[in-house]
Design a protein around this nucleic acid. Structure first.
Length: 879
DNA sequence: CAGCACACGTA
DNA sequence: CGTACGTGTGCTGT
């Protein structure tokens, strides 16, 4: 009988329940795009949510085995020895499940040398003694012995974990015919095949119960074994040692020393943000709301919002001399928030760690604020770029920017999805930023004022600084913040794009696409949506009976590479028309998106997302100007529509040639590669000559293609398999090519190997300038995850160093153009290329600045080569 | 209507 | 079974 006034302690055997879930749910339906299986985790958490909702435990813990070894295996080496290795698909799931539980603030209990059931037994015993209703949830029958008036067992039925059967004292007696404390006696007699504990031959549950009833206890039975009649009696006498051993081993320990006792297992609010993150990683979606609901986290967050851990200062609104006085008193860094309206400043919030003020952006206040804003007085902002732009539109050039919390958070953890100050407040302060509910006309909770936002920003910065290694702080101060100010200018400047040229091209492509579609329909005798992979699969693999291509999640691939392969082996007019249609519609789509992005000033203003990559690169959105087609003649018409703007003379493009291979040469110190770059010879020709043992003049186009693919592939962690596929050569030939390559450029291989090894030790990689990227998966037991992490870790220092170098060059160029009073300006950055708009008469000066600043942005053991082009449009300016 | 899968553009 | 991105389309599930 449960007493509702008592607290409820729920203790769960994590391993056994997750294992049950693993077999109950189809493994194929539960895996991430990285190949991590998640069915056991999902099933366990799903069961847990149901359990929490139904039982409403006040105290909760999950216990795990630490390994297969325990005091039992030492006592009896055969114990569980028949258990086969758990499937590879299951193994990696336990650590991830423990991570989930961590995020949910549910204690995970482990004790080396003991099994999870011993932990459950100990907690159940302590809990019952301390006045709890105890619920034990386990898939191991041995836990039946724990049931008593205070302890109930929840046992999964054969179907899996969705149904749990409740065993209280009565239910055990009904099912097994003996009280719970006698169940181990039955088990000892019968034996437990799954634990490799043989019992008495021919004795099953029925006989065991009969004997126990007859003799009263196992001890009595053993003492009177000679009185037991029949064949089974003989068997019993022969196996008495087994029975004694079984009974010894199946007794659960109730006095394991644990780090936490029942009273310390009180249910805590979950870390909603952490749960979101890990669920995102595991690609769980439906589960999140269920978890939040069951744990009351959706409620908890709004409660926390009204009660931050540290009291917010009230925001005052000083004016005139008072405002002046506040600014003069704030000698330390000041948090700054510029509230904007349609891209212009509206209100400003300023704060130190104990004071917050705000001011409307009007003539009176700005007269006092502008000198402070443009001064070197140090300022801390969150996601400063948009605010810097707003100020600049008001002709205020912000000075003294010392710290950007959003960028700092990203530098510390580039993989985290933090996008707002609210996220940072949760993660780094463990508090909740008050936010008005936008769905309510009159929100119940008030959002933070700009002054309070600045106050939070200052405090988040303080927390971030404490976590930031020096090298990361240097990257923030010396690379990211200066870049931010330049990116703001670039976005404001935009790039002139001709609507007329784009729309003419778009119309042409539209007509062409329609005509191609009609022809394609004729060849197959029906009309389908050529943009639908699903319908295309029907046409290709059912109607036309073409051989199957690469498998995808939903069927077979219809991508360009696959279609080209099909065309080679099974030529069909439809295939070629489809490819042409794809090309025309894709181009048209890119053109349309660019066209709609052209502003009233005839220019496109992209947004560079400074925190948009894990490596340090920028990304570009709305629209993305970093993926404008270039690889074929026709598509370059799009680039031709990017033109020099009014008041300017020409476009200058500048790009680093082979910057990643140069960084590879620098980092690996490979003498051959260094010589290649110092020789002035074409890189791939030089490498080809070495690899194939010929004179550079004898390197054929085919040889050059091969070493080029090899060189680039190295930077990405390419395998012989991948190389053979890329070059359409035999895997053996690819392997041979790699061997020859490394025979000549061995230091490259050594560097790549050692850099991954170092990353495994450190847990992160580092660029030349100290930018870090953590790689927790390098130590994952899951091979797919681990090998993916290894390739990414191999690439990160190279791609990241290139990104660092380009950012340094970018702001050096910008700053020097300004310093020399030139009007020429940087418009675009495409990873290793810059596009600059040159004002009349400034070509020579601008070219000089660009060449010099890109060339000396970093001092490597090989020179940084810069290619410059000039033209009235982007296509012409390409060299 | 949101989110997924696919396909494809760039460095 | 090669890294890093963003976007548009079709389609499915809420």
């Amino acid at each position: 009988m449960t007493d509702s006034a008592k607290p409820t302690l729920l203790v769960i055997d994590g391993h056994s329940l997750a294992y049950r879930a693993f077999y109950a749910l189809p493994v194929d339906n539960f895996s991430t795009k990285d190949g991590q299986h998640t069915n056991g985790i999902y099933g366990f958490l799903s069961m847990l949510v149901n359990l929490v909702k139904a039982e409403k435990p006040t105290h909760l813990a999950v216990a795990f085995d630490t390994s297969r070894e325990s005091f039992r295996t030492r006592e009896y080496t055969e114990y569980k020895a028949n258990r086969s290795e758990s499937p590879a698909e299951f193994k990696g799931q336990i650590p991830l499940l423990q991570e989930c539980l961590g995020a949910m603030n549910i204690p995970v209990l482990l004790k080396p040398d003991f099994e999870a059931d011993d932990i459950l037994a100990t907690l159940a015993t302590q809990g019952a003694a301390a006045g709890y209703n105890v619920l034990v949830c386990s898939g191991d029958r041995d836990t039946i012995q724990l049931v008593n008036d205070d302890v109930t067992l929840l046992y999964p039925n054969v179907q899996g974990v969705s149904q749990l059967k409740r065993y209280d004292r009565e239910a055990v007696i009904e099912r097994y015919g003996v009280p719970p404390e006698q169940y181990p006696d039955i088990a000892a007699l019968v034996g437990e095949t799954s634990d490799n504990l043989p019992g008495v031959p021919k004795v099953g549950e029925k006989t065991a119960v009969k004997w126990l009833k007859q003799y009263g206890s196992l001890q009595e039975l053993i003492d009177n074994a000679d009185k037991v009649t029949g064949v089974v009696g003989g068997n019993l006498r022969e196996h008495l040692d087994d029975v004694r051993r079984n009974r010894k081993l199946n007794r659960l320990l109730t006095d394991v020393e644990l780090a936490l006792g029942p009273d310390e297992l009180a249910v805590n609010p979950i870390d909603a943000q952490a749960v979101r993150e890990i669920f995102a990683r595991l690609e769980f979606r439906a589960l999140l709301p269920r978890v939040l609901e069951a744990t009351g986290a959706d409620q908890a967050t709004s409660d926390a919002a009204s009660a931050p851990a540290v009291a917010m200062p009230a925001t005052t609104e000083p004016t005139g001399a008072d405002l002046q006085a506040w600014l003069e008193a704030a000698t330390a860094e000041v948090g700054l928030t510029v509230l904007t309206e349609r891209g212009l400043p509206q209100r400003l919030g300023l704060a130190t760690s104990d004071s917050a003020i705000e001011a409307a952006w009007d003539a009176e206040a700005s007269a006092v604020l502008i000198p402070w804003l443009v001064s070197d007085a140090p300022k801390i902002m969150n996601d400063a770029k948009a605010q810097v732009k707003a100020l600049r539109r008001a002709d205020v050039v912000l000075g003294g920017l010392a710290f950007d919390t959003l960028i700092a958070g990203w530098l510390l953890r580039p993989s985290f999805p933090d996008k707002t100050l609210g996220h940072l407040v949760e993660r780094f302060l463990d508090e909740t930023l008050p936010e008005a509910d936008p769905s309510q006309l009159v929100p119940e909770t008030e959002g933070a004022t700009p002054g309070q936002l600045s106050w939070f920003t200052v405090r988040v910065a303080e927390a971030l600084r404490a976590d930031m290694p020096d090298s990361v702080t240097t990257v923030l101060t010396d690379i990211e913040v200066p870049s931010l100010l330049v990116l703001a200018d670039m976005e404001l400047a935009g790039v002139a794009v001709s609507h007329d040229e784009l729309s003419a091209f778009s119309a042409e492509l539209g007509t062409r696409a329609d005509s191609i579609a009609q022809q394609a329909f004729t060849t197959i005798g029906r009309e389908v949506n050529l943009g639908s992979p699903k319908q295309l699969q029907e046409v290709l693999f059912e109607d036309l009976q073409l051989p199957k291509t690469r498998k995808t999640k939903t069927g077979y691939s219809t991508d360009a590479a696959g279609l080209a392969d099909l065309q080679r082996t099974n030529p069909h007019p439809f295939l070629d028309l489809l490819l042409q249609h794809r090309e025309a519609t894709k181009l048209r789509q890119i053109i349309e998106s660019l066209d709609t992005a052209i502003g009233a000033d005839n220019r496109i203003h992209t947004t560079y997302v400074q925190t948009g990559s894990q490596t340090g690169r920028l990304s570009s959105t709305d629209p993305n100007l970093q993926n404008i087609p270039v690889r074929n003649e026709e598509s370059r018409r799009i680039r031709a529509a990017f033109q020099v703007g009014n008041g300017y003379e020409t476009l200058l493009t500048a790009d680093y040639s082979q910057i990643e291979m140069r960084i590879m040469a620098h980092l690996s110190e490979d003498p051959g590669l260094i010589e290649a770059f110092n020789s002035g010879e074409d890189l791939h020709r030089f490498v080809g000559a070495r690899v194939f043992g010929v004179d550079p003049s004898e390197v054929t186009a085919a040889m050059r293609t091969k070493v080029k693919a090899m060189s680039y592939g190295l930077v990405y962690g390419l395998s012989a398999f991948g190389l053979s596929k890329q070059l359409r050569i035999e895997q053996s030939e690819a392997k041979q090519l790699m061997l020859e390559y490394f025979a000549r450029f061995g230091a490259v291989r050594d560097y790549l190997r050692s850099s991954v090894e170092q990353a495994k030790i450190d847990g992160y990689t580092e660029t030349i300038f100290g930018r870090r990227r953590p790689f927790p998966d390098l130590s994952s037991p899951n091979r797919v995850l681990r090998e993916n992490a290894e390739r990414a870790a191999l690439n990160a220092p190279i791609q990241g160093s290139a990104a660092d170098i380009m950012k340094i060059a970018l702001f050096h160029i910008h700053d020097e153009l300004r310093a020399q009073g030139l009007a020429s300006r940087v418009l675009m950055q495409i990873h290793d290329e810059l596009v600059i708009e040159v004002a009349p008469g400034e070509w020579d000066a601008a070219e000089q600045i660009v060449r010099t600043r890109m060339g000396d942005a970093a001092s490597l053991t090989v020179p940084l080569d810069v290619q410059i082009g000039r033209g009235a449009n982007w296509d012409e300016a390409a060299h």
